[in-house]
């Protein structure tokens, strides 16, 4: 089971700044475990951030994104109390979506 994305969003002068920390191992598929066996690649491939249902950022990740991917970005608009949703999919097909409220 995956853990929830930690996310904060705050609005200043009409610009909302979002900071998100997705919880994921982001295995690159080249690391070996103690027994010398390759650990299969396991990483987030796509994510999407919505503000009240409208896409404000989306993207794709390869294996070179750090463990527990961090993202900081800003968009125009948004007001205190609005919902921000971040969803992701990984290469095993696992999905999750988490919400935060703009403060």
């Amino acid at each position: 089971m995956s853990s929830p994305t930690k996310m904060r969003a705050s609005v200043t002068n009409g610009v909302t700044e979002v900071r998100a920390l997705m919880q994921h191992e982001m295995e690159n598929g080249r690391r070996k475990d103690e027994a010398g066996k390759l650990v299969p690649a396991w990483h987030i491939t796509e994510f999407k951030v919505l503000h009240e249902g409208r896409v404000v950022l989306e993207g794709q990740f390869g294996t070179s994104v750090s463990k527990n991917p961090y993202l900081g970005f800003r968009f125009k608009g948004g007001k205190a109390g609005d919902r921000i949703t971040l969803s992701w999919v990984d290469n095993r097909g696992d999905k999750r979506a988490d919400e935060a409220t703009i403060s």
Partner: peptide
């Protein structure tokens, strides 16, 4: 509407 700004690791 989204700024050309990204911070990541």
């Amino acid at each position: 509407g989204t700024e050309g700004y990204l911070n990541t690791k």
